[in-house]
């Protein structure tokens, strides 16, 4: 047996209580025939005894009391956090709602540019979208962040977000009256929706989504 490697490894395994019977016998046989390993083994055993018997120390007096005095006070915020950790589904739902609403609010606040659905022959002037006289717009019209003036015709629904439907200039009041009548009668053939408040905006989104789902199901 190689004294330096194998025998010493076996000694340590023995001291860790991890030596199989067969190896233990091999170690014992070797120790009987090898004085230097015997000495090494005795020293190791003595070392472990010395270390094991090192007086167990006790914590200083009033240790527990000191720890208890230094514990952080139970805080409401902590309870709150713990509750969040205990109810992952509730937390997930809350996060979802925060993200959803913040998304809609941001879309409402940031988009200050006048946008209009893609239709030809529309004029945009000073935040006002004009359907010029004699022009007929085919399909639904959506105006965002601007007013809408209809001098011609719209064939479909009108949605105005963050804006108004404007009647004519004050110069030609008499004409405008006529046109107003005409507006009321035939300027657009579908529904008119105006969305001006944030909650309306949210409602509009919800309705739109619902409608889309509904149409989808009908198809």
């Amino acid at each position: 047996m190689n004294c330096n490697r194998e025998a010493i490894a076996l000694m340590h395994s023995y001291l860790d209580g991890e030596l199989y019977k067969e190896d233990e016998r091999r170690l014992r046989d070797h120790l009987q025939s090898c004085p230097s390993c015997q000495e090494h083994f005795q020293e190791l055993k003595r070392t472990t005894t010395l270390v094991k018997n090192a007086t167990p120390v006790s914590a200083p007096p009033r240790f527990t009391a000191n720890v208890m005095a230094n514990l952080p006070k139970e805080k409401k915020r902590k309870n709150y956090l713990r509750k969040l950790q205990r109810h992952p589904f509730l937390t997930a739902a809350a996060v979802f709602f925060i993200l959803m609403f913040s998304g809609i609010f941001t879309a409402w606040n940031q988009d200050q540019q006048v946008t209009v659905s893609k239709q030809e022959n529309l004029e945009i002037r000073d935040h006002t979208v004009i359907v010029p006289d004699g022009v007929t717009v085919e399909g639904d019209l959506v105006v965002r962040n601007g007013d809408l003036r209809i001098e011609g015709r719209v064939d479909g629904d009108i949605t105005i977000i963050n804006g108004d439907i404007v009647e004519s200039d004050s110069n030609n009041e008499s004409e405008s009256d006529n046109r107003l009548d005409r507006n009321n009668l035939r300027a657009y053939s579908g529904e008119l929706t105006e969305v001006n408040q944030v909650y309306e905006w949210v409602w509009y989104h919800a309705k739109k989504t619902f409608k889309e789902i509904f149409t989808f199901e009908q198809d």
Binding site: P56, V57, S58, A59, P60, F63, T64, V67, M68, L71, E74, N79, R82
Partner: peptide, 20 residues
């Protein structure tokens, strides 16, 4: 569950080992 005083028994049971 939030009962701070229950921690006292834990400390006094393990204090010697941890200090050691």
């Amino acid at each position: 569950k939030g009962d701070q005083s229950a921690f006292e028994d834990i400390v006094s049971f393990y204090q010697n080992k941890v200090f050691h």
